[in-house]
């Protein structure tokens, strides 16, 4: 009886769902709404309207900049939550860390030291060139974070911590949301809307400059957050 009832309910629920699926446009049909609304407009007018040759940058920083603003705030909040849990004052925390069980290999140390400047250069390139080629703040920030982790392993924590001076750290970790707020308010002052970008003739360089500043903010913030997470979890070990 119960099984029959469940089967009947499932069939009743399945009929409207299946009929809706039948109404959907066929997969990859060129006239489906996914390809006819904003996407086509973005592809055709994105570069001139939003100011970056890389359409992805146009979408995430200009057309949907508000969404990205929320996104970087979520990332920063996640860091704050992790720090709040891991940095709880505990009685048994020892001040002196035990020496690492295994000394860092000479080969690894040499190669990381040799490549570190190139990795840093590549990160800066990915961040600064994000409005022209694939890349941008999120990708470059990840490369920066990986560099911080590699240097921490090779140089040891104390040396690596000096790369990011302690008073500057909170500002670097919050760099992405702060940059968005600053550019957003600048948009109110200049264009009249939050995160508005000037698009009229003589002011297009301002728009490009703001896009690059946002990329730098996202990159620095992302790298600082990844590095801090690594340091905090290593100290917890």
């Amino acid at each position: 009886m119960k099984r029959a009832l469940v089967a009947a309910l499932l069939i009743v629920a399945a009929i409207p769902l299946l009929s809706i699926v039948a109404e959907l446009p066929p997969h990859a049909a060129p006239d489906s709404p996914a390809y006819t609304h904003v996407s086509a407009h973005y592809l055709e007018h994105g570069a001139e309207e939003a100011g970056a040759e890389n359409i992805v940058t146009d979408v995430i920083l200009n057309y949907r900049g508000f969404d990205t603003n929320g996104e970087v705030t979520v990332i920063f909040t996640a860091l704050a939550a992790v720090l709040a849990i891991l940095l709880l004052p505990s009685e048994e925390r020892v001040e002196e860390r035990p020496a690492p069980a295994m000394p860092v290999s000479m080969v690894v140390r040499f190669v990381v030291r040799l490549l570190a400047p190139f990795i840093a250069l590549f990160a800066v390139y990915v961040i600064m060139n994000g409005h022209v080629t694939p890349g941008g703040g999120f990708q470059g920030g990840t490369i920066l974070g990986a560099l911080v982790i590699a240097l921490t392993i090779v140089l040891g924590e104390d040396e690596a911590h000096r790369l990011l001076p302690r008073p500057a750290r909170p500002w670097l970790q919050a760099a992405a949301p702060l940059t968005f707020v600053v550019i957003g308010i600048a948009g109110i002052a200049v264009v009249g809307s939050y995160l508005g970008f000037p698009a009229e003739e003589p002011w297009q360089w301002v728009r490009t400059a703001w896009l690059v500043i946002l990329e730098i903010g996202i990159g620095v913030g992302g790298g600082a957050i990844i590095g801090t997470l690594f340091w905090t979890m290593e100290a917890e070990r």
């Binding site: 295994m102 290999s105 080969v107 690894v108 190669v111 040799l114 490549l115």
Partner: peptide, 13 residues
Amino acid sequence: LTSPTSGHALARA
């Protein structure tokens, strides 16, 4: 440069 280094680090560890 990087591939032998990571192989070395893995095997050493």
